[in-house]
């Protein structure tokens, strides 16, 4: 099976400080790939390389290649806003933009040039349904997004990414600020979403990693230790360090 995303020998430096060391990783389509490991493992850096959100950071250096559907996304002439529409991102904290629920969801599509009212309404409802939020907010679409609960805000952010109909969804600890019930709802939504999208997620705990992973990659200090289908990695890790981490001996 062709990988959706392929990282080839990717190293990344902040100044002289390496954040990723020679990472090679295939991310398969229509599945949830979990990237996990202790803090400082280069996970956020990795995620932001896939939608080129690290472009704005000064004093950084990258080697290696990142391929999306076989195309080098760092090749000259790549349309970065278009790439970011194809590769959606949800941040660790719910970050609603100022404005209403509706404005949040339609921000991306409007920037992408969608003007047709009916089409926008359709996008609004479809994205909120996909993120399992529609029933809770359908009567509050014109309320400020900041009045939603934390869990609702995070699903709003997921819906906001989905409104662009991306191919890949990157989630950076999407449930770190949420209570268990909200977390459950987000995880449920992800299980539905993986049939349509390629999902890369940093879980906020090993338990969550084990719950949602179709594939799992363990990262330690900027290096990828191993990558396997989830049920194998969490039952029979190949590397000693992975085993130590998932059995709670460190981290």
């Amino acid at each position: 099976m062709e990988p959706k995303i392929r990282l080839e020998n990717v190293s990344y430096y902040y100044g002289n400080q390496p954040a990723l060391r020679d990472v090679t990783l295939d991310i398969p389509p229509n599945a949830i790939t979990v990237i996990f490991g202790p803090a400082g493992g280069g996970k956020t850096t990795l995620l932001r390389l896939i939608n080129r959100l690290n472009d704005e950071v000064e004093g950084t250096r990258m080697t290696g290649r990142v391929l999306l559907d076989g195309q080098d996304i760092y090749a000259p002439g790549v349309d970065v806003p278009r790439l970011r529409r194809r590769v959606g991102m949800v941040f660790a904290l719910p970050l609603p933009l100022p404005g209403t629920v509706r404005e949040n969801i339609l921000y991306g599509p409007k920037l992408a040039g969608v003007r047709d009212r009916a089409r926008l309404e359709e996008i609004l409802e479809r994205s909120l349904r996909l993120a399992a939020l529609w029933d809770e907010v359908k009567d509050r679409l014109d309320d400020p997004a900041s009045r939603l609960s934390g869990g609702q805000q995070q699903r709003l952010c997921i819906a906001r990414s989905l409104a662009l109909e991306p191919e890949v969804l990157l989630l950076d600890e999407p449930t770190s600020g949420l209570d268990p019930i909200s977390t459950g709802k987000v995880e449920e939504a992800l299980q539905e979403l993986k049939h349509r999208y390629t999902i890369v997620i940093f879980p906020h705990s090993v338990q969550q990693a084990a719950r949602v992973a179709d594939y799992a990659a363990f990262f330690l200090m900027g290096e990828m230790v191993e990558c396997q289908p989830g049920r194998d990695l969490f039952t029979t890790p190949r590397d000693r360090r992975t085993e130590d981490y998932i059995t709670g001996r460190f981290g």
């Binding site: 970011r84 970050l95 920037l111 990414s161």
Partner: peptide, 16 residues
């Protein structure tokens, strides 16, 4: 700063 990051992640140019 997060607002700028969110906007960029949704396909907005810096000016947008």
């Amino acid at each position: 700063g997060e607002f700028r990051l969110v906007s960029a992640s949704l396909g907005g140019t810096r000016w947008q």
